[in-house]
Each structure stands twice: as structure tokens, then as C-alpha cells.
Design a binder for these strands. Structure first.
Length: 272
DNA sequence: GACAACCTGACC
DNA sequence: GGTCAGGTTGTC
């Protein structure tokens, strides 16, 4: 569920509340969510001072003074919620962090249990993190063009590939391709430099607007204070199947590309 | 590449 | 009963 704008929103909220504070205690309620041994997980986090909270691609990094990092990926339905200590525990809460200063807990909640929490040692960076490519704000249009030229895959699956470009997921890829008027199946090496410049600009703009709206909530996404995002009101193709395109009035269609539901306008996004 | 797997819930 | 879901990974 969460893509770059949702993760960025969470990271900003957590940083404000957590940076400089301390984790007093940790309770693991569902073992499989935590990829590090429970003992190491607890030993690392109990009493740890939080230096900063950052984002890398769709990963959340809670950096500790010990130089170790709590690495979190929310996958589809993961949530990080800041709640009062006395709030009732719901059955989908899998990890609970007691915080200092107190009164508040950080809870990891995840209906589908796809998400992962893991400790990264400074001398042993996690492979999933080192394999990540820069996100759209860390790469120039020129560089993106060069990378796209090197591949000849269909554009959409490539943009979803976190080792090619990080941060984008299904919503923002569909929105970016629609707003750039590029068909999702266009071979990446057939894009002109002008098309890539536009795509690069559009991706950045869509992500910035979505961050400003505090993310997109279709169903599960919540910010750390439990609030829903607002960008769902600005979607133009994603979840708009059957509605007329606002540019050419053609009805928005949904197909499958690379195994993912794909929304596009057959009028504006003609195959390259 | 396509597809199943990981899980639960919503919807038809 | 079946299909679908904002993600990633492992298998042909």
C-alpha cells in the first residue's frame, strides 16, 4: 500500500515525535514480522536513543545512537501508529514500542502481515537496501534517460522495479504515465529524450503533490497519527476505471501489465 | 517475462 | 464460491 509519499509522510511524523527520544521497551507479539532474532532485536532496541528517522525508497530507517538502524518495510498493509499507552491493543498489532518521554507508544500494525522489521548493523548493510536505486528526487532527467536507454523492458514494470528506480508503486506509476501521456507497455529504449524529461518532471510533481496531501488512502493507509491521506481526491486514472478522461473524454480502462492492475486512457496513451 | 506465494478482508 | 488489493520475492 504505501509508496514514496506515504512513507515520507510517516517518516516526517515519526521524526518529529521520536528523534532524540528513547525506546524504553519492546514487545513482539507476532514473531514472523521481525526478521532479526528476538533476542538481538530486544537487546538492540531496549534503552536505545533515536538519532533520526529517514526514508530510503519505501523503507523507513529508524537510526539509533548505537549506529544500528531499525529498518522497516510496510509492504501492503503495514502501519506505524503513535498512540496513547492506554489505548486498547487491536488484534493486528504485532510489535509495540514503549517510548521515553512516556505516555505514547509506537505500534506496528499490519492486517496482512507482509511487512518486515529488521536490525541493520553498521558494518553489515542489508542487501535489500544496498540493491535499491535512487528515488526520483535523487536522479536527474538525463540520468533517467540514460538508464531507460540501457533497458528494453516495458516501461511500467521497469518503473516499479525498486532496483531500477525506487519509491514508485502502482498508484503513482499509473498517475505519472497518464499525465505524461505514455502507454505503460512502451519499451523503455523507445522513449525520446523529450518524453523522458516530461516523465521525470511529472513523476516529481505527482510525488510532491501527494506528499503535500499527506499520501493516498484507498483503504488502509494511515499516517502515524492515524489520519488518512488526501491525494485520492486528485487521482486521474488510478481507481478511475470507466470514467471519462478529463482531456479527451475516452473512458479510462483497466488492464493487467506485469501482473499488476493498470489504469490508462486508450485515447491519450497510445502504444509507442 | 509470467505466476505463485506470503495473508486478511472487502466485495460480487 | 471467486476475485481483487497500495509490495516483494522466489520459481519456472
Amino acid at each position: 500500500m504505501p509508496e514514496l509519499p506515504e512513507v515520507e509522510t510517516i517518516v516526517r511524523g515519526l521524526r518529529e515525535k521520536l528523534a532524540g527520544g528513547r525506546i524504553r521497551a519492546v514487545r513482539i507479539r507476532t514473531l514472523k514480522i521481525v526478521r532479526t532474532s528476538s533476542a538481538l532485536f530486544r537487546r538492540t532496541l531496549c534503552g536505545a536513543i533515536i538519532r533520526d528517522v529517514r526514508r530510503k525508497g519505501k523503507f523507513i530507517l529508524i537510526e539509533l545512537e548505537s549506529a544500528r538502524t531499525l529498518v522497516i518495510h510496510l509492504r501492503m498493509t503495514g502501519q506505524l501508529l503513535l498512540v496513547p499507552e492506554n489505548a486498547p491493543l487491536d488484534p493486528h498489532t504485532h510489535v509495540v514500542f514503549d517510548l521515553e518521554p512516556g505516555g505514547c507508544q509506537l505500534r506496528y500494525r499490519d492486517v496482512r502481515k507482509f511487512g518486515r522489521l529488521e536490525i541493520q548493523e553498521p558494518e553489515r548493510p542489508l542487501p535489500q537496501l544496498t540493491a535499491l536505486s535512487p528515488d526520483p528526487f535523487e536522479i536527474s532527467a538525463r540520468e533517467l534517460f540514460r538508464k531507460l536507454q540501457e533497458k528494453k523492458r516495458a516501461l511500467k514494470p521497469l518503473l516499479l522495479d525498486q532496483t531500477f528506480l525506487s519509491g514508485l508503486g502502482n498508484i503513482y506509476v499509473d498517475e505519472s504515465l497518464y499525465r505524461s501521456r505514455i502507454h505503460p507497455l512502451t519499451p523503455s529504449n523507445r522513449l525520446t529524450e523529450a518524453q523522458v524529461r516530461r516523465l521525470h518532471r511529472v513523476i516529481r510533481r505527482v510525488l510532491r503533490q501527494a506528499i503535500q496531501a499527506k499520501g493516498t488512502t484507498i483503504s488502509d493507509y494511515r499516517g502515524p497519527e492515524g489520519i488518512v491521506g488526501g491525494f485520492q481526491h486528485f487521482l486521474r486514472v488510478y481507481d478511475c476505471t470507466g470514467e471519462p478522461c478529463r482531456v479527451c473524454r475516452t473512458l479510462i480502462e483497466k488492464t493487467r501489465v506485469g501482473g499488476r492492475g493498470t489504469h490508462f486512457c486508450p485515447g491519450c496513451q497510445v502504444p509507442g
